[in-house]
């Protein structure tokens, strides 16, 4: 069919360009995936459990961030609340990139949503807004999501098996803490973000005695409020 031919060229052409733009960015996923794989193994997950989490959750930050709570046998609602807090940025990314899905069906939108990551958002945002052909846009976006998924699963699996052969005295579980630091440091470069992080971290220490580990959630809320307040204060000062 002629129409299908034309349509598939649109999606393939988009995918080709998307892949070229995304390939260099995607290399940064590799150490991250290795560390998440090692951290899950250090937490005591079997390879099946670790890959189960990796495929079902598919979110490095939320996986690493909730691991200490899972190890501590924290209540489910606290794990959920922490996971949500770590994923809230995706609400903003999703709202931002949503206009780029004009003319694309609901099924593709669900798949695209599931595959939305920081890297895909950053690389695809401009093209999703500018290009007219919805199939080209879908191809461009989806290739970044599918490639992220493949790299992520492959190198997490490598990390799971690498951790299995390393002796316990090497304290590999600390790699998870370093990974969270690596995520946090570039965020904290703006003053209000630094305030949010310091208030969140400081109050989590001070409130660690609260029952049911309510301290973590309270600390996150205080950190958000402090960052927001600092932003207002900074703007007032500038004005």
């Amino acid at each position: 069919m002629q129409a299908t031919d034309f349509e598939s060229r649109g999606i393939v052409a988009g995918a080709r360009e998307g892949f070229i733009a995304f390939l260099p960015v995607s290399v940064g996923l590799i150490p991250w995936a290795l560390v998440v794989g090692m951290a899950m193994t250090s937490a005591g997950f079997t390879p099946l459990q670790a890959m189960g989490m990796n495929i079902i959750v598919f979110a490095g930050t939320a996986q690493l961030g909730t691991l200490p709570l899972i190890i501590d046998n924290a209540p489910l609602w606290l794990i959920l609340a922490t996971g949500l807090a770590l994923n809230l940025r995706f609400l903003i990314f999703s709202a931002g990139i949503a206009p780029g899905f004009r003319g694309i069906g609901t099924g593709w939108r669900w798949l695209s949503g599931h595959l939305l990551t920081d890297g895909s958002f950053a690389v695809c945002y401009d093209k999703m807004m500018q290009v007219d052909d919805p199939r080209w846009r879908l191809g461009y976006y989806l290739i970044t999501g599918v490639w992220t998924w493949l790299l992520w699963q492959t190198f997490t699996l490598a990390g799971i098996f690498a951790a299995g052969i390393v002796p316990k005295s090497w304290s590999l579980e600390f790699m998870a803490t370093i990974a969270l630091i690596v995520l946090l440091v570039p965020m904290a470069k703006s003053r209000p973000m630094l305030v949010a992080a310091m208030v969140g971290g400081g109050s989590a220490v001070l409130l660690r005695g609260m029952p049911l580990r309510l301290g973590v959630v309270t600390a996150i809320c205080l950190g958000i409020a402090a960052g927001f307040a600092a932003e207002h204060w900074q703007e007032k000062k500038a004005a």
Binding site: T61, G65, P68, T82, A85, L86, L88, R89, L91, I92, A95, T177, L180, I181, L183, L184, M187, A188, P192, M193, A196, A197, M198, V199, G200, G201, G202, S203, A204, V205, R208, V216, A219, I220, C221, L222, G223, I224, A225, A226, G227, F228, E231
Partner: peptide, 20 residues
């Protein structure tokens, strides 16, 4: 939207700082 931008930094710090 603006307030939610601070959620990841606050949450990461709330996990890392007590840990170390």
């Amino acid at each position: 939207q603006r307030a939610l931008r601070y959620a990841p930094a606050a949450a990461l710090a709330a996990i890392v700082v007590p840990d170390v």
